[in-house]
């Protein structure tokens, strides 16, 4: 008999929407899409989340898995600046870079209290304000001893669960329908996490990228409107 796969408590805690990492302040472009009228109901939300998972979700999964792999094998501190620079080069939208760093800071503050590690201290020392998927990867890979697949799963899930709960608040959607739109992506999420784990040991410059131009435009427009009018979410 094979053992059931176990999920570490840290993995559950980081994926929990009540984890105090500040993720609730971000809609991942959904608020701008709602503002434009392109997402107004559960069917459109499902399509939005599908696109988001395959672009931003896949991209962040790659870097979370790589960071978990690096933390577990014990890399030199300069590895974190390479990883940071490679993620930056794959994130052309300044609004998305800022949102990723903001969520990274929040997650780091909470994560440091829960799962301190030398890798986490070195990540903070070399990058100043690390990106969210890299923080998640280091927390799980070093402090909590979870796998690159777990780290990739957490950020891939968060890439759609955050916007889904934002949709409930912005559109008054049925929470059951919004949650069902997330869980309908199970097979895609698992495939993306497994794929990210497969490249986790690659050199930072060779990590795959996945750009989503429409999401970049939403993020940039959101940033502009955020300055000009009242918005509910930071991104």
């Amino acid at each position: 008999m094979t053992a059931m796969p176990t999920v570490s408590l840290a993995t559950l805690a980081l994926a929990d929407s009540r984890f105090p990492g500040g993720g609730h302040a971000h809609s991942g472009g959904l608020e701008e899409a709602v503002h434009r009228g392109t997402v107004s109901g559960p069917e459109q939300l499902a399509e939005f989340l599908h696109g988001r998972l395959h672009g931003a979700g896949a991209q962040t999964a790659v870097f979370a898995a790589a960071a978990a792999h690096a933390a577990a094998r014990g890399v030199r501190p300069d590895h974190w600046s390479l990883l940071d620079a490679e993620l930056e080069a794959r994130t052309p939208s300044p609004a998305q870079r800022a949102a990723s760093r903001a969520q990274g800071r929040g997650t780091l503050r909470s994560g440091r209290a829960a799962w301190p590690s030398r890798a986490l201290d070195e990540l903070l020392a070399t990058t100043g304000s690390p990106h969210h998927p890299i923080v998640v990867g280091v927390l799980l890979g070093a402090g909590a001893s979870a796998s690159p697949t777990d780290a990739a799963s957490v950020v891939a899930y968060l890439s759609v669960s955050g916007p889904a709960s934002a949709a409930v608040r912005l559109l008054g959607l049925d929470p059951f329908a919004a949650n069902a739109a997330v869980t309908a992506l199970r097979a895609d999420t698992e495939r993306i996490a497994a794929e990210a784990a497969r490249t986790a040991g690659h050199r930072p410059e060779n990590l795959p990228g996945a750009s989503s131009p429409a999401l970049d435009l939403l993020a940039e427009q959101h940033q502009r409107h955020h300055r000009e009018e009242v918005r509910l979410f930071a991104s």
């Binding site: 434009r36 696109g51 996945a210 131009p213 999401l215 939403l218």
Partner: peptide, 16 residues
Amino acid sequence: HTFEPGRQRLRASHAH
């Protein structure tokens, strides 16, 4: 920058 338009469903998504 790596870009794949992907299948119809992905191309139609407002997040892609």
